[in-house]
Design a protein around this nucleic acid. Sequence first.
DNA 1: TGGCCATGTTTACTCTGGCAACTCATTTTG
DNA 2: CAAAATGAGTTGCCAGAGTAAACATGGCCA
Lengths: 205, 205
Amino acid sequence: MRKKAPGSYHHGDLRRSLIDAGRMLLAKNNSGGLSLREVAKVAGVSHTAPYRHFKDKAELLAAIAETGFHQLRADAERVAHTYRETPLQQYTHCAARYVRFAVENPETAHLMFGGGIDMRTAPPSLKQASWATFELLIEIIENGKQAGLYKAVDTMDLAVATWSGIHGLSLLIANGYLTQLAASDSQIDGLAQRVARLLLEGIRK
Amino acid sequence: MRKKAPGSYHHGDLRRSLIDAGRMLLAKNNSGGLSLREVAKVAGVSHTAPYRHFKDKAELLAAIAETGFHQLRADAERVAHTYRETPLQQYTHCAARYVRFAVENPETAHLMFGGGIDMRTAPPSLKQASWATFELLIEIIENGKQAGLYKAVDTMDLAVATWSGIHGLSLLIANGYLTQLAASDSQIDGLAQRVARLLLEGIRK
DNA sequence: TGGCCATGTTTACTCTGGCAACTCATTTTG
DNA sequence: CAAAATGAGTTGCCAGAGTAAACATGGCCA
């Protein structure tokens, strides 16, 4: 989190600093939101300086969400690479990673998926970042399909179904709907495993 | 939406009017949020009158979310009753109803599930309303289980898995992540059907 | 070297949430 | 039945936040 060197007029990389400060504050004021002025202060800059880099507050939030997508994609990509030879494990471990991301970064997840941003009208770079994340999921499904793991159904349907399941579970946990079943980290992992399994095998007898 | 009769001092049922006004405004200012003063104005009352009924803004929002849960539960209950003899259809049609609720009331859904409210610290009546909704789902699963429809797995796991899937799909659509696949109402229904089916049968070959 | 333009600053305006003190109407009670 | 108590709504106020406009600064290119 670079601050402006005191005395110097120009900052150097304010845009980046604002995003970093934003994420930091978002994590600190748990779900209490975030004020542009606060962000500016943390970055060591006057409260209107952000407007040189973002049209308005929503655009800063969108940029923060974008870093969330980049992180999520990078996290999942690492896991996917580790299990590149075993499609089934690739799927389950990536799913678990997705859930962990939401649980570990609830405010960022809230920003990305909470409805504050409508993807239909989001900035192009954000759309692209979210799309790139989804593409990774499609790849993973495609991998499994070619290994004969999944049904011969439209890949898109398979991908949407699993995405929905993992996504829904992540948000339910992150928003405290499953406190009874998923209090500790190990319980969360366990639940994620079992749900991923059920998505795979179906609930039907 | 009852307004105060002009000239009369007392309103009669302000609490209810504020909630109604809130939902109306939420729907109008699409996802633009909602101001307490605006709500008060619509209800025909001074800007601090709401404080006689709600501790603060968050509490009003929680009350609005609560009506959302009541509506969702009532909607689903009606569907569940209609298909009470056929557990499979009961499941698929309730799932479709859940998705429609989110798509038709995106702002309310946003409030309920967007992370603005953490269920762990929510007002008891809200917790109860959300729990009652989940209970209906559990009942539906239990029905199917007794009809020999589902795997002999912990009902809670079955319920969480399907809830996650439907919930995730609903939010993905409502937040515009699946615009390509789910633009029209009929496309949404179709997608919901196929996803519900995949949750049932699993994606594995 | 001198002027331009991107980047930051200052100032000011509006909107919002929330507190305090006041008023009005209804209900309870001596 | 009058008067106090209480619940419901109002007026006024303040601090914090988003943002527009005018101004300042300083690095870069002609």
